[in-house]
Write a protein that binds this DNA or RNA. Structure first.
Lengths: 71, 71
DNA sequence: AGTAATTTGTTCGTATGTATC
DNA sequence: AGATACATACGAACAAATTAC
């Protein structure tokens, strides 16, 4: 599974409210297990979501859905 | 140097015409050497530029600046 | 109050796979 | 066939934040 596919899936889940604004996403390791891909791939996924302004990552804390989704 | 810093720098160079539309960017290894970062970081940089619709990567060929830059 | 341990994101380095030349 | 190039995987080390003691 490619980083773009996973990014699109996660983006959709965020849009659908499965991960609402302000909530914390599963950790990179957890997401890797969820999607059966490597942590490296999930890192590229997170970079995509970051560029899409959907998440904000914080070292040591976790990755959070932004308060105000674009559009 | 972070992947976002490198991505911002490369984006600016593309915008400035240093890497014009249709041209091929240096290879991942070359870029890694240019910015004194690892190839892994450059890969995340490329994902950012891909999300910004500035480049198109082609396996086995290289990474090219898109013909029509956004905006 | 303070420090050690844990968690989590970030970067690094290497190896393997796939595609192109 | 061989070399080059991007894509994914894996493991390790690092840095920042939190938790446990």
């Amino acid at each position: 599974m490619s980083s773009r596919q996973v990014a699109d899936d996660l983006s959709a889940r965020i849009r659908d409210g499965e991960y609402p604004p302000g909530s914390r996403l599963p950790s990179l390791r957890e997401l890797a297990a969820l999607y059966s891909v490597s942590v490296s791939t999930i890192q590229r996924v997170m970079v995509r979501l970051d560029e899409r302004r959907l998440i904000v990552a914080s070292q040591g804390r976790g990755t959070y859905v932004v308060d105000d989704l674009p559009q």
